[in-house]
Design a protein around this nucleic acid. Structure first.
Length: 281
DNA sequence: CCTTTATCGATGGGTATCTG
DNA sequence: CAGATACCCATCGATAAAGG
C-alpha cells in the first residue's frame, strides 16, 4: 500500500499545467473575473467543462486560483526585459479583477447567470420582494488606507459649533464644492456605465464568435462524413468548395439568419447574422 | 538525479455575529 | 460598546510526484 502521510505532497497522477491548460485557465478567468471563493468555483466548473471537451485533466478551484496567482507573481526573467506573454496576460487580467473589485457594486457574488456584465446593471436596486442576500466580496488585503478609529464627537454640538464658526462666504463655497462633487460623481457613474456597456458588447461578440466557430466545426465534420459516405457509395463528390453555401439549416428572416444559443443552466441568446450569400448589404 | 510545481496543512489577518 | 468566537481568505512552508 502506498504510504499516505497526514499532510502535504502532490497526489499521484496529477499533471502539470501545459501551455494549453494555462491559456484555457486564463480564458476562463478573464471571462469570470473572479472575486472571492464562490467566483473561483465558477471558474472551476467552466474550466472543467472545457477541459473535458479537450481531453485535459480537470482542476479544482484552489488549483486554478493558485496557478493564476503564481502566474501573476512571476517576475521578469533575468536578462530579459519582456515578461512571458502568459505572465503579462495574467497580470492584465489581475488588473481587470482589481478594477472590478474597486469600482463595481456587487449584487450577488455568485453571479448566477454568467452574464453579470449586462449593461443594464450598473447601479443595483435589489428587488423589493426578494429576500436580501448580503454579498460578501473579499479581495486581497489592500495595503494601508484603513480607516482609523474616529474620536467620538457629539454630533449636534459639533454641527452647531461649525455653523457658528463659518460665515455665509464659507457656507457658499462649501455648497459650490458639494455641487461640484455631486456633478463629478454623476459623471463617474455615467462613464462607468459606458465602460460596462462596452465590456458587455465585447463579451457578447466573443460569445457569438465562439458559437459560430463551434457551428462551423460541427458543419465541417458533418460535411466530411457525408462526403465519405458518398465516396463509399461510388458517387462523385465536389473536390473544391469555393463558395460559401449559406445557412440552409437555419430559419431566415429578411435575408438574415437567426441563431439561438441555449445555455444549460437556463437562459438563451438570440442573434442575427447577415447572410453574405443572400444580399450585399 | 535535480528542478519544477501541484497540493496540503498551518498560520495569521480581517470581518461578522453573538453575548454580557 | 467591547470582548469572545467563528468563519473566510491569503500566504507560506513542507511534501512528493512530474518532467527535463
Amino acid at each position: 500500500a502506498p504510504k499516505r502521510l497526514a499532510r502535504g505532497g502532490r497526489p499521484a497522477g496529477s499533471t502539470n499545467f501545459t501551455d494549453f491548460d494555462t491559456d484555457l485557465a486564463l480564458d476562463v478567468v478573464e471571462e469570470v473575473l473572479p472575486i472571492g471563493g464562490l467566483a473561483w468555483t465558477k471558474v472551476e466548473s467552466r474550466f472543467n467543462a472545457l477541459a473535458r471537451k479537450n481531453n485535459r485533466p480537470e482542476r479544482t478551484a484552489k488549483s486554478l486560483e493558485n496557478k493564476f496567482k503564481t502566474l501573476v507573481k512571476t517576475k521578469k526573467p533575468t536578462g530579459d526585459a519582456k515578461r512571458p506573454p502568459r505572465v503579462r496576460r495574467a497580470q492584465e487580467i489581475e488588473d481587470q479583477i482589481s478594477e472590478k473589485a474597486g469600482t463595481r457594486e456587487l449584487c450577488d457574488e455568485g453571479d448566477t447567470d454568467g452574464h453579470s456584465s449586462d449593461a443594464s446593471v450598473t447601479i443595483v436596486n435589489p428587488p423589493a420582494q426578494a429576500p436580501v442576500l448580503t454579498a460578501v466580496a473579499r479581495r486581497a488585503t489592500s495595503p494601508a488606507l484603513r480607516a482609523k478609529p474616529r474620536a467620538r464627537v457629539n454630533a449636534p454640538e459639533l454641527v452647531s459649533k461649525l455653523t457658528q464658526s463659518f460665515g455665509p462666504e464659507a457656507q457658499r463655497a462649501r455648497d459650490e464644492d458639494r455641487s461640484q462633487r455631486s456633478f463629478q460623481t454623476a459623471q463617474f457613474f455615467a462613464i462607468n456605465q459606458q465602460l460596462q456597456h462596452a465590456q458587455s458588447t465585447n463579451e457578447n461578440l466573443r460569445g457569438q464568435l465562439m458559437t459560430m466557430q463551434e457551428r462551423l466545426h460541427t458543419a465541417e465534420r458533418a460535411r466530411d462524413i457525408a462526403e465519405l459516405k458518398l465516396e463509399h457509395h461510388g458517387l462523385p463528390t465536389k473536390s473544391h468548395r469555393t463558395h460559401f453555401q449559406g445557412y440552409a439549416d437555419f430559419p431566415r428572416v429578411d435575408g438574415k439568419v437567426r441563431c439561438e444559443t441555449r445555455y444549460p443552466d437556463g437562459g438563451a441568446c438570440t442573434y442575427w447574422i447577415s447572410d453574405p450569400s443572400g444580399d450585399e448589404s
